[in-house]
Simulated scan of single mutants.
Amino acid sequence: MEFCPTCGILLQFELPYMGRPARFFCPTCPYVSHMESKVKIKRRQHLVKKEIEPIFSKEDMKNAPTTEATCPKCRFGKAAFQQIQIRSADEPMSTFYKCLNEHCGEQWRED
Rank of each mutant, 00 (worst) to 15 (best):
R23D: 00
F24T: 00
P27I: 00
T28E: 13
T28H: 13
V32W: 12
V32F: 09
S33N: 10
S33W: 05
S33M: 09
S33Q: 14
S33V: 04
H34N: 14
H34I: 13
E36M: 08
E36C: 04
V39H: 07
V39R: 10
K40M: 05
K40N: 06
K42Y: 05
K42W: 05
R43G: 01
R43E: 13
R43H: 07
R43C: 03
R44M: 09
R44G: 14
H46P: 04
L47V: 12
V48F: 05
K50P: 02
E51I: 08
P54H: 02
P54C: 05
I55S: 00
I55K: 00
I55Y: 02
I55F: 07
I55V: 15
I55E: 01
I55A: 01
S57E: 06
K58N: 08
K58P: 00
E59K: 12
K62R: 11
N63L: 14
N63I: 15
P65L: 07
P65E: 08
T66S: 08
T67H: 02
T67V: 12
T67C: 13
E68Y: 07
A69S: 10
A69M: 10
A69G: 04
C71S: 05
K73V: 08
C74A: 11
C74M: 11
C74Y: 13
C74G: 11
K78D: 03
A79E: 04
A79Q: 12
A79C: 06
A80T: 01
F81K: 09
F81E: 03
F81H: 05
Q82I: 12
Q82N: 03
Q82K: 15
Q82W: 02
Q83L: 05
I86L: 11
R87W: 04
R87C: 03
A89K: 11
A89V: 08
A89R: 09
E91K: 11
E91G: 06
P92G: 07
P92N: 07
